[in-house]
């Protein structure tokens, strides 16, 4: 019975995946189906738990991760981020206001004037260049540290991405399409690993669920030994499947982030996070 349901659901998702960018695509229906899929796949895991990544699939790994999060390796990075933020405080306050706890939750959003998705990192650098300051590199270092500082101040708030125009819907559709389309030498899509086969192991690495993917970024990865942004992870993921990665903060990745963040609407922001 369970198996039949799973098959029916996975067929549903694959049909979702292959259907063209029809005008009938409704993000909210997508999101509900997304959540229902993961509920059916693992009835014992509630949707809210997926913000903790692949660790939800293993009690052992969860215990190790929780131990690591008690004195997490990203604490210094948050302090660095705070210091950097305060160094150019007047500039940032002009862009983001004076309450640092109210910034992270606004991103990503679709800017109706420029018809582009604006990410937190994009907004930080735009704020800098508009004020005549040098922009930071996109993937690690200062930008990730400031992003971590702002995420930390927003912990517990809920992801709230809005789609309120046709142009925003088009950006969502582009991200959705990217997510579902197989690519690279290995012919893999985001969805194949992180929806259809989430919870399964590739060698000894557990594939995380796409639900909650954006909540805990930036992350301190043991593999990197430092903090990195979501788009840095996108690049790494694409290299893993032997696809040519796009540039961090390219329109493609910003649209993907927009789609992924929408899928995680209502989930708690818990960045920065520690990951293997």
């Amino acid at each position: 019975m369970k198996k039949t349901l799973l098959i029916a659901l996975s067929l549903g998702v694959s049909m979702l995946a292959t259907s063209s960018m029809a005008a009938t695509i409704d993000p909210e229906t997508d999101r509900q189906q997304f959540i229902e899929f993961f509920k059916a796949k693992n009835p014992n895991i509630s949707p809210e738990e997926y913000i903790n990544g692949a660790y939800v699939y293993s009690a052992d790994k969860m215990a190790q991760w929780e131990a690591a999060e008690e004195f997490p390796p990203y604490l210094d990075a948050i302090d660095e981020g705070e210091a950097l933020y305060n160094k150019d405080l007047a500039v940032y306050q002009k862009c983001f206001g004076s309450d640092v706890s109210k910034i992270r939750v606004k991103y990503p959003y679709f800017d109706e004037a420029s018809k582009q998705v604006v990410t937190l990192e994009g907004a930080i650098n735009k704020c800098r260049t508009d004020a005549g300051l040098k922009p930071y590199g996109w993937k690690k270092g200062p930008i990730a540290q400031i992003s971590a500082y702002l995420a930390d101040n927003a912990r517990g708030q809920k992801i709230d991405v809005k789609i309120e125009s046709d142009a925003a819907l088009a950006a969502y559709n582009k991200g959705r399409d990217f997510f579902n389309k197989p690519r690279g030498q290995f012919n893999l899509s985001c969805a194949k690993c992180h929806v259809d086969n989430s919870g399964r192991n590739a060698r000894s690495n557990t594939l995380s669920a796409a639900l909650g993917h954006t909540t805990h970024f930036p992350v301190f990865r043991a593999k990197w030994q430092n903090l990195g942004t979501l788009h840095r992870r996108y690049e790494g993921c694409q290299k893993n499947i032997r696809a040519k990665p796009y540039k961090a903060q390219s329109e493609t990745y910003r649209d993907l982030e927009f789609f992924q963040a929408y899928m995680s609407n209502g989930l708690e922001i818990n960045g920065p996070g520690y990951r293997e």
């Binding site: 996975s10 694959s14 030498q185 290995f186 086969n197 032997r242």
Partner: peptide, 13 residues
């Protein structure tokens, strides 16, 4: 459906 198996010959892996 949704197979992860790469086409090893076709994609030149």
């Amino acid at each position: 459906p949704n197979s992860m198996m790469p086409p090893f010959g076709r994609h030149g892996i």
